[in-house]
Design a protein around this nucleic acid. Structure first.
Lengths: 188, 188
DNA sequence: CGCCGGGTTGATAGCCCTCAACTTGGGTGG
DNA sequence: CCACCCAAGTTGAGGGCTATCAACCCGGCG
């Protein structure tokens, strides 16, 4: 159950066995059925979540009732709402499971304590946050491009996940309508 | 010269005088004339930069020769290319000065050393990276909205900077043409 | 077997881009 | 100090990409 997260951490920092034990003891395990919510708009987000099985989608619902996908999360990814965690305000996002899913969750307040006890853990979170930041920068640049280019970029990066996600959700992630995405895919 | 950056840091962590001294000794000072480059496409980005005077714009130039503004940086902001710094690859971005500008720069390799010597400094960078991440998430959501809504959001957040930046750069930042932005502003 | 969410396809419309011409203003050099 | 020049901004016309709406198909699940 903990192999995936320990391996993920070990790619950036090396915790000794004691530190690993301390960190793992702060984690809680949660399973979700397909379509079940991990977080709903209006709640306060108090945990960060690491996916060990399945997949999730984070999205906001705008005034017209349209869903805008902020991100997906598959095995080996973190997902949560840092805005809500940092400010303590209710989240604008929903996070629900696209498949039957299992996550490890850590409370934000506990994580802040652990940063004091395990400096290397703070380094790990700094590093993955930098990578997440860079990924969003890339996405912003591609949102300036045509629908076809956006899909081509998505396919080259995340094509291997494509069958696990409904096309309309991918379209939303790319900022295009599901009809347009469909036409693009049927063109070639 | 160092007041601004020390005050910025103190909003998130409190360094003792020794740590402050150590950190400041790693900084270099650089002045740029308007239109001068801080970073150019193809170079490796080896420094992060903190603006103490003036303003800059970070942008990529695409195949059609169009500039896409990634972000601006004013006094009290950090700017650099973390993708290039993390991977050691040449940057795709240009960063140039919109006004006569002064920055404090820190070498990425030196910063990594300092993180070992001053854990609180690593905390500071983790925290500002989280804030930057959240800001980009917000921007992605607004790139789904109409040109008018994007400008309204920009104005409410950064309206006080508006006179210091050419409208065409703001348009690029918002992902709309300068003509469209102009029509929006002259409508009201 | 029926329902429903997801996907497909066509017709239409609209937002915004592009191109072009003109205006304005600040900076620079004579 | 003035005149020129170029960058930036303004305004109009036209078109294209993509959203929207609608109808229909399909497969899986209850």
């Amino acid at each position: 159950m903990y192999d995936l997260i320990l391996h993920n951490i070990s790619r950036h920092v090396s915790l000794d066995p004691q530190e690993q034990e301390l960190f793992l003891s702060a984690l809680k395990h949660r399973t979700l059925r397909r379509k079940e919510f991990l977080l709903q708009e209006g709640e306060r987000c108090r945990h960060d979540h690491f996916v060990i099985k399945g997949s999730l989608r984070q999205y906001e619902t705008d005034e017209e009732g349209r869903d805008n996908v902020m991100q997906f999360a598959f095995e080996d990814w973190w997902i949560g709402d840092w805005y809500s965690m940092l400010t303590g305000t209710p989240t604008v996002f929903n996070i629900d499971a696209l498949e039957d899913t299992e996550v490890l969750m850590i409370e934000k307040t506990r994580l802040d304590e652990l940063f004091l006890e395990i400096p290397k853990l703070e380094r790990y979170f700094r590093i993955i946050m930098q990578h997440a930041f860079v990924a969003l920068q890339h996405r912003i640049l591609f949102l300036q491009k045509s629908a076809e280019e956006r899909y081509a970029d998505f396919y080259s990066r995340y094509g291997h996940f494509e069958q696990r996600v409904a096309q309309q959700h991918i379209a939303s992630y790319l900022g295009i309508s599901r009809e347009t995405l469909n036409r693009i895919k049927n063109k070639q």
